[in-house]
Design a protein around this nucleic acid. Structure first.
Ligand code: ZN
Ligand code: ZN
Ligand code: ZN
Ligand code: ZN
Lengths: 171, 171
DNA sequence: CCACTAAGGTTACTCAATAACAAATTGTTG
DNA sequence: CAACAATTTGTTATTGAGTAACCTTAGTGG
């Protein structure tokens, strides 16, 4: 079976990189995406998105809540869940079902299929947009008379950085 | 891309079928699986497995808890979660991450990859064991230097029965 | 019978998510 | 601008998911 051409939307970032750039880019794209969709990126929603992009690690809802609570004096679960729901609808963040956590989407401007690679060592999540893979899965379902409308594809394993590190010295 | 040969481990059952047979078979296989693995299928574990097999729908942990509570006078979350953990380890049930729910495994006797088709209309879950698909996903990951160890593949959509029903009369 | 291990009971807690209703903010329209 | 509608956020409270820690009970082997 051939490996389909795939786009890496959010790769395993080098351990050290200019992450400020990641955040800036993500927020700029978010503005555009919301404007295009006719949705409002309010300060709260923008801040939550910024926090999600705080790293390339998946973020838990209650961690966001704790940070917001320090910043705003008033923050309850609905505060963060509503923002996250909105961001998901616009396609700015994805929810990782197997982790109950959220990650920013690297390419929110067009709808796309997505698959996630989750490193169990460093926790980093990479997002793929392998259309061939997605199509293959849908085809497998269709062969059974099942019409697929949504896919949850989450793969756990060890990322290339951690493999390299592991080869040098098992800590 | 060709569709790999796939085994349907737990198909979309006809609306009416002899489900008692499903349960009996599942419990018999469970006895064998536990005996082989040198694990004990205690009355509690057996009962939880039986409840999971109550239908072809995914079952929530707290629903199991409620039923057990009626039957046993004493049942707390650990009661059901410990049983479910055990059943998962032996491979007798699978957890559906996108639903926070559990389904019985139709073919627990040998280890296998699995994918799940979830009908959003009737709620039924079918389990596939499409090795080609699984291999294809691992290969996509490997192409990025990622060594996959576990896959969560859950597809939502409409099953063949519901499609047929829908064509006759949109209720 | 005694020591050891596995299984289950019990209490209590943290985290995940949503319901329902009130207040405030924003957008629209005469 | 004033009045109204729609959206967003605040607030309170609850349900559901899952786990930690500790204790008791039940099997197992000598
Ligand atoms: Zn970055
Ligand atoms: Zn890693
Ligand atoms: Zn059945
Ligand atoms: Zn169906």
């Amino acid at each position: 079976m051939t490996i389909a051409k795939q786009t890496v939307l959010k790769s395993f970032a080098a351990v050290v990189h200019d992450h400020g750039r990641c955040v800036t880019t993500a927020l700029a794209k978010a503005e555009t995406a919301c404007a295009t969709a006719g949705k409002r990126l309010t300060p709260l929603r923008r801040r939550v998105l910024e926090l999600v992009w705080g790293s390339h690690l998946p973020v838990k809802a209650y961690d966001l809540l704790a940070i917001l609570g320090r910043e705003r004096e008033q923050a309850a679960p609905p505060t963060v869940y509503r923002a996250l729901d909105f961001l998901q609808q616009v396609g700015l963040v994805h929810r990782i079902a197997s982790l109950n956590a959220f990650v920013g989407c690297g390419e929110p401007l067009q709808g796309h299929v997505s698959q996630f690679l989750i490193c169990t060592q460093c926790g980093t999540v990479a997002e793929l947009a392998n259309l061939g893979l997605s199509t293959s899965i849908s085809a497998s379902a269709e062969a059974l008379g099942f019409q697929a409308t949504r896919q949850t594809i989450e793969v756990e394993g060890i990322c290339k950085h951690c493999r390299k590190r592991g080869a040098q010295a098992v800590q």
